[in-house]
Structure formats: C-alpha cells, structure tokens
Design a protein around this nucleic acid. Structure first.
Lengths: 322, 322
DNA sequence: GTGAAAGCGCTAACAT
DNA sequence: ATGTTAGCGCTTTCAC
C-alpha cells in the first residue's frame, strides 16, 4: 500500500496551508468560495480521504461496540444483531461485528477487536477460557449471563414462561414430554422438568450430542421408533424445534395432533414454518436495549461503581405447534 | 464522560516514562519484570485503555469495511454478512455493520460511517440518491450491481439458472407459470418470462405491491381464487417463496403436487421448510470473496486503475418444491 | 480570508 | 533497563 495521501499533500497541491484544507473539507466558514473549490478539486484528484485516526485523536468520536456472535447463519444471532445495531444507531454508536466461527485464532482475533472498540457485547462464552485475562480490563456485556455474576450482563429468565408452558401442556393432556437438548443436563431441559413435575408429569431428557441439523433429525427419528414416543417435544431453541418438525413431517407424524413441538427464542423463523411454532419468546429489542444501557454505563461512567445486571423475561408465545 | 486516562497518567502513577508504559502494555522486551508489573498495576487501577486513534496513527492498522445491509431480519442479509465477515476475518480486516432500516437520517448516518471505514460494501441502492455525492470520493462495492456500471461491483447473473429452470419446468409439463414479484416489471420476472417463452410457455406477471408477509399471502390467495390458478410460482426471493408456500398450505394446496414453488437466493431457510425449497441459488461465500477482492484492490491500489467487476452466477438448486 | 503554532495519545528510533 | 526526541494526521486556537 503506497504512502497515504495526507492533508499536507492536498495543501501543497492547492497551494494553501493545511488549515485551509481543513476548512474546505469540513464546510467551515471563513474561506472564500474560490479557494474552497480549488482545494476540493485538489483533494479529489489526489484521492484524499482524511485519516480517521488523525481526526479521531483531536475531535474524539462516538463510541464503538464490538458485537461478537458465534455464527450469523444461526438465525438467533442476526435477530440479536439487528436489535443491537438498531439500539446503537439511535445513539450514534458504531458496531464492529465479529463472529467466532470464522476465527482461526480466537485470542489473537479478540485482541485486535478489543483494541478497536470501547465495549464488547457478546454471548456468554465470550471472555471465558483463553480470553479471560484479556477481558479483565475490557468492558464486556454478556447476553444470557448467569444470574449473580460479578460482571453486569443481560440475564434471560425462562422461569415464568416455563411455568406457563407446563400449565398449558398439562391442560392439553400431554403424557410423555421430552426435552430435546444438544448436551446433557441442560438447564433448559431441567427447568422444563421442574415445572412439568408440578403437574405430575415426568420429562425425559434427550441429548442430541450437538446443535446441528443431522444430529437433531437423527435424535427425533430414534425417539419416534422408541418404546414410548413423546407427545410433546421442547427443543433447546427455535432452530432445533424447526428441525424437529422437519423430521416429524418426514416421518408422517402430524404436528400438533400427534406430537406437539415447542421452541425457545421467539425468532421470526417460527412464523414462516408450517405449522407455526409455539415458543418461549424473548423480545430481542428489549434484550438489546438492556445490553446497550449497560454498555453506556460501562463506557461513560467508567469506574463510577459497577452497573447492575438487567433481567429480561421470556414469555410463552402460543402458536399452532403446541 | 470524564477526561480519558492517558498513557501519561499511568506513567505518572507508576513513576516511569511513557515509553516504559508502552513497553509494559505491549509485552515488549527491554523492561524488568518488576517495573512491568508495577506499570500494569497502575494501568489497571486507573482503568487505562490505550486510545485506538493514538495507536492507529503511529502504527497504522488493518483496513475496515463498512458493511451496509438493509435489514438483518431479512435472512438474505445475515447470510451475506456471515460470508463477508468470514472473508474479512481471514484477512484481518474489521467489519463495521450498519443497516438502513434503523437509520432515521440516511445521509447523516452514512457520513459518519464513511468517516470510520476504508471501503463500503453494500446492496445496490447504496450510494444512490441523497448519498450519491458522498460516494464520489469513497470506495464502494455494490453487491448485485448493474452490469456495465462505471463502478466495479459484484454482478449477480441469473441467466443460466433461469434457463435451467425453464427447461426443468417445461419437462414437468407446467402450463400456467406465474412470476410473483414485489413490484411491476421486475427484471427477475421478465427474465423468467423470456426463458419460459422459449418453451412456448406464457408467464403471468403478478405484483404483490411489497415484499412483506401480508402482501405476499394476500397475492397468493387471490391467485388461487382466480380463473386460472397457477401450477408454478417463481417468487422474487426465497423469503417470499416460503411465505407463498405458507399461504398455499393454509389453503390446502399441495406443494409440489398442485403448485410448484421456486425461490431465488439459495438461503438455508429453504432447507428448513417443508417441503424443501427449490431455488436459484447463489454461493454467498463466492459473492463475499468477490466483494472483498474488489475492496482490496480499491483500498490498496488506490488510483492504480479501476478494478474490474466480478460476476457470480446463480444455479438451479433442485429440491422438493418444484 | 488565511497561515503559524500547539497539541490530541501513542510508539519507533535513538539516546543513555 | 529506562528516558528523550520526534512525528504519525488532523483540528483548534490565535495571529495576521
């Protein structure tokens, strides 16, 4: 990359001083129309673009959020990202987007990101393990953070929605509920079991071994051929729920008549599938607003006491699938 | 926001010079372990974070892309964004994400974005109308640009895929094809008609009047109750195609038995719905790679001749819906 | 209306 | 191992 064109180059080309170039570039007063056009022409010919660092150093600039998602092809993340970008745009903040799925060196990539932004917003795994030390000094807002964490974050609360779901399913005379989770002993599955137990129903925990399409489809197929096929499936999230519905459709099983399906998240994906997905929805706009509020406190009142976590509640969104 | 903590503050607190602070912060050699820890402690206590502008000015930094999408809740854009982030990450570039749907003042927001990035990547409408002058001096890569444009961009070519689709549909004995487009005289609809005509088939152009769910569903319902209901629908894109399938399912119409449905884009959304969507797919990774290639030429070989446009072809992806 | 000087926060090069 | 000097590119005084 050749040496960058600076304000001095333009000044020399136009035969004026640097300050005059600044005046022309920034539409300031105290400059004659003729010199302004002359300067602007010189700038254009040289392909001059002011350095953001030079300018930022003296003028300061709006804060920047580093938004770290895992994988934008997982529809949860774009919906979150959209809300975060919306909340940031309103405040004039910028959003630097990074994902972890394309990163070959998590720590290195995170270091360069952290150097570019004022605060990082990300999912709960951010700042764990190898990047833990890095974030000792960097403002971080986790979305879906553990309640009671020392670090302020957005806590997502499924309790009320899960209670409503259990009541609803009990009313529907459900007998054999299954929690379909990517791993074992998933908190969502356990919470589901807890609430179903209050209605005298015993939840079978099923682990797919992963959160991908194939694993989900296979697990559902096995469930159907088992001795006691379920009559309702709570999936880990909406995406898995949709995959489960796909597997059910393939097997000729009707939803919700034969098996009910419930997801978690409330993505618009659930509206596009047939039947429409019943889900424990969370309002992403609310989540993003909470995240940005914490980010603002972190950035603007640096050191003035730790901001508090925000809590956002899921709610049962009854649609056609359950 | 209080005055920012600078390297001098840390230097004073630790009783050393600025350079020593730099050495400690950047893990450089030529510093004793004891002073390093002393400096690091002072830095932490003061909540010191190096200014990206100060550092960027002297060290230079990686280029930054401004990625402008319209709306991340439209699944086309996250899939594009994912690919762009992937391609950028590999090169160590950063991506500043902005959308237009949340922008209250397009021009103002675009001006601040442009000041933060080295090159803008966006959809065809970027840099049109009120922002046209702004982009006279700013590198811009349009994805889906018009062939023959003076400005290098990524041109998406539907021709071959459309020819394949027409041949396929003709073989399937289709009789009453419809192009379901948001506007009138849409190029995609016209291209479809052109190719179907070569098989002696006449395409009816239908405009929904918009690209939202309701409009699409209404249009499909009207189509079904019309005098000559279609037996195949080419939708403007995958999202509209999925909505159309939803409307068909509601009406009790079987896909593909009664009506075939085809989308455009090749989003993973098409795999999640039942039946799976046949579509004119474009490889987003290829698109993003092409966009970044142009961006690199624009940024690194500034002024050394205009880079050429890249062309990416759609291809017919036969799945279950047609 | 225009130019000269000073300084934003940082690091590289050169002292010591 | 540490400090001094210079300068990155820009805008803000303050002269003229």
């Amino acid at each position: 990359m050749r040496r960058r064109v600076t304000i001095d180059d333009v000044a020399a080309a136009a035969g004026v001083s640097r300050q005059t170039v600044t005046r022309a570039m920034n539409d300031m007063a105290e400059i004659s129309a003729s010199t302004r056009t002359r300067v602007l022409e010189a700038a254009r010919e040289l392909h001059y673009r002011p350095s953001r660092h030079g300018r930022g150093l003296v003028k300061g600039d709006q804060p920047t959020i580093g938004l770290v998602v895992h994988d934008l092809t997982n529809p949860y993340f774009p919906e979150l990202a959209s809300a975060v970008v919306g909340a940031a745009t309103v405040r004039g903040w910028h959003v630097v987007l990074a994902d972890t799925i394309h990163s070959h060196d998590r720590l290195a990539d995170m270091i360069t990101l952290v150097g570019q932004v004022d605060v990082v917003v990300g999912y709960p795994a951010i700042g764990q393990n190898e990047t833990e030390r890095l974030f000792e000094d960097v403002p971080l807002v986790r979305i879906g953070s553990e309640p009671g964490s020392a670090r302020a974050g957005v806590e997502l609360d499924l309790t009320a929605a899960m209670a409503d779901l259990a009541a609803h399913l009990s009313q529907q005379q459900v007998r054999r509920p299954v929690a379909l989770m990517p791993g074992i002993d998933d908190v969502r599955g356990l919470l589901f079991a807890e609430h179903m137990a209050q209605h005298g129903l015993d939840v079978t925990q099923v682990s797919t071994g992963g959160d991908q399409l194939e694993e989900t489809v296979t697990a559902v197929r096995e469930l159907l051929t088992g001795t006691t096929p379920p009559d309702v499936i709570l999936a880990f999230n909406d995406r898995m729920a949709c995959w489960a519905m796909k597997a059910l459709a393939r097997a000729g099983v009707r939803v919700p008549d034969d098996v009910r399906v419930v997801g978690v998240d409330g993505l618009s994906l659930g509206e596009i599938v047939t039947p429409e997905l019943t889900t424990l929805a969370v309002d992403m706009v609310e989540v993003a607003a909470a995240a940005i509020e914490i980010a603002v406190e972190l950035v603007e009142k640096e050191g003035a006491g730790r901001p508090a976590s925000r809590r956002v509640e899921h709610r049962l969104l009854l649609r056609a699938s359950a």
